[in-house]
Computed example of a mutant assay.
Amino acid sequence: MIQKKYRYPSVLTIAGFDGSGGAGIQADIKTISALGCYATSVLTALPIQNTTGVKSIFSIPEEIVEKQLQTILEDIFPDAVKIGMVHTPKLVEIMVGKLKEFPPLAIVFDPVMVATSGHQLIENNTIQTIIKQLFPLADVITPNLDEAEILAGMNIETVKEMKIAGKKIMQLGCKSVLLKGGHLKTKQLTSLYFLPDGSIESFEFPKYETNNTHGSGCTLSSAIASYLAQGKSLLEAVSLGQKYIHQAIFQGKDVSIGNGNGPVNHFFNPQKLIKNEMDR
């Protein structure tokens, strides 16, 4: 038997497809790779989309998603999991049931409900199943304001309202919540991280004049998962993940790709795959 010395920190992304390359599973793989981790993937849906919006969505049969997940988990067991588009109750149940069969994992859930273009991407009857089954499993969920308004059942137009909404979402059974404030009509970007101990960390960044933010939520959640896979704490992973997406937006803000909302620059500072010594 060949003796091997190293392994890469591995991140599994469970998400939908984006043929334009800026969001979904493509953005996840780019992010995970750029941060020095090894990416594996399970495809949940096939949206037909480009930078101008989603044209239609085709489901992947649930049994195929389950077989994908089983096959990856039994061979390349990840250090962290990022979950994105989960659009049917049955798919949620399959995913949660399968993940519970294996040792506990660091899980980041990006509740993909609304695309950057404003298109709703999730079936309404799926939301309650997600709240009951997936929220308690995830270490952190990362809703944007559109998604937070759905989850909290309120309009959000100020940082004060973000705090109220975040507390409401935490009461749904979440371990922690990163509420992204990029849609606020302010000169700076404010995000709030609601920690398991009840405290709130505020993060502020300059806001850039650009529409190249397609897939920014996918990218952020994958970055957090990548840092968790590297052994960072939740708070550190959330902080580093936001710094990464902020720079990815800045470095790609003036680039022309497509006729709509362009992608961020995932590879502004690519890292080599991290080599961790294997336990003997």
Rank of each mutant, 00 (worst) to 15 (best):
T116W: 12
I141N: 02
S221Q: 04
L145W: 04
T13F: 06
L189K: 09
Q171C: 08
H183V: 00
K5L: 13
L134M: 10
I76Y: 05
F17K: 10
D279K: 10
V65G: 02
E62A: 15
A223H: 06
K232T: 13
L137A: 06
T186E: 13
G24Y: 07
Y227M: 06
V140Y: 01
E277H: 11
H266Q: 01
G22M: 04
I32S: 07
I274G: 14
P143M: 01
G22H: 04
I72F: 05
E204F: 14
N276H: 14
A148E: 06
V96Q: 00
G21W: 06
G153F: 02
A165Y: 06
G21P: 13
E149L: 06
S117I: 01
D279G: 10
M154A: 13
I131H: 02
I29S: 15
Y6A: 05
F17R: 09
L121S: 07
I14W: 08
L234V: 05
V140F: 03
E93I: 14
G173R: 08
G84W: 13
T190C: 09
M85Y: 04
E66Q: 13
A27G: 07
Q128D: 04
I169L: 12
V65C: 03
T40H: 08
M278R: 07
E161W: 00
I274Y: 15
C218H: 05
Q128L: 13
L12K: 07
H214I: 00
P136S: 15
K275M: 11
I57V: 12
G252C: 08
V177M: 05
A229S: 15
Q271K: 11
E277Y: 14
G241W: 05
K163P: 07
L12E: 06
N276D: 10
A148L: 12
M154G: 04
P196R: 09
M1G: 13
P104K: 13
I130G: 00
A115D: 12
I48D: 10
T71P: 00
G231P: 09
L228N: 12
L145M: 03
L178G: 03
M95I: 15
K55G: 04
P111M: 09
K180Q: 05
F203V: 01
I130C: 00
I14A: 01
V159G: 09
A223M: 03
I25C: 12
K187A: 12
V42R: 05
F203H: 08
